[in-house]
Simulated assay, not measured.
Amino acid sequence: MKPKKKSLSDLGGIMYSTDPSFNFEEEETTAQGAVPHQQQDLRVMLDKKNRGGKAVTLITGFRGTAEELEQLAKMLKTKCGVGGGAKDGEVIIQGDFRDKVVLMLQKEGYKVKKSGG
C-alpha cells in the first residue's frame, strides 16, 4: 500500500514542466520490510463518528503490508466473534472490545496503548 501524500513536498517538488523532452523519473521507494511486533506502536480506541451512533473499536498505527493487516483483522474478528474490516492502515472491530483487543495484541507481542476517552 502506497503512503498518502499530504503536502506538495511529498510529491517530489516537480509539478509541471513545459519542456517537451522532460522525463520525470520517479524514485522507487523500497518496500517496507517486515516490522517486528515489538516495534509496532498500536493505538486502540472507541469510535462513534460517522457510524450512525454505533460504536466500533478502532486499531490504528499498524505498519506493514496489506496482507498482514488483513491477517491481524481476521484474527481479532474471529477471537471477538464479531464483524469488522481493515483498510487504510486501520482495523475496525464492531462493538466495544477495547480491553479484550488490547490483551490479545499484547499476547501477540505488539506494543499497544488505549487512547481516547
Rank of each mutant, 00 (worst) to 15 (best):
G13V: 09
I14W: 01
M15L: 15
Y16P: 02
T18D: 13
D19F: 00
P20C: 07
P20Q: 06
P20K: 13
P20T: 08
S21D: 14
S21I: 08
S21A: 09
S21F: 06
S21T: 14
F22A: 15
N23W: 00
N23S: 09
N23A: 11
F24T: 11
E25Y: 02
T29P: 07
T29M: 15
T30N: 11
Q32K: 14
Q32T: 15
G33N: 09
G33A: 15
A34I: 12
A34E: 15
A34K: 14
V35H: 06
P36G: 08
P36F: 04
P36Y: 04
H37P: 11
Q38L: 10
Q40P: 09
D41V: 12
D41I: 07
D41L: 12
L42P: 03
L42A: 07
V44A: 01
V44W: 00
V44S: 01
M45R: 12
L46E: 04
D47M: 10
D47F: 06
D47Q: 13
K48F: 02
K48S: 14
K49N: 10
K49W: 01
K49T: 12
R51D: 08
R51I: 03
G53W: 03
G53F: 07
G53N: 10
K54E: 14
K54G: 04
A55R: 03
T57M: 00
T57Q: 03
L58R: 10
I59Y: 00
T60H: 02
T60C: 06
T60G: 06
G61A: 04
F62L: 05
R63W: 01
R63Q: 15
G64A: 02
G64H: 06
T65G: 13
T65V: 01
E68P: 00
E68Y: 01
E68F: 00
L72V: 02
L72C: 05
A73I: 00
A73S: 14
K74G: 09
M75Q: 11
M75H: 12
M75P: 00
M75F: 08
T78Q: 13
T78Y: 08
T78A: 14
K79A: 05
K79Q: 13
K79E: 11
C80A: 12
C80Y: 01
V82N: 06
V82W: 02
G83F: 01
G83M: 05
G83W: 02
G83C: 04
G83D: 10
G84H: 04
G85C: 08
K87P: 01
D88M: 14
D88V: 08
D88A: 12
D88F: 13
G89Y: 00
E90R: 15
E90N: 15
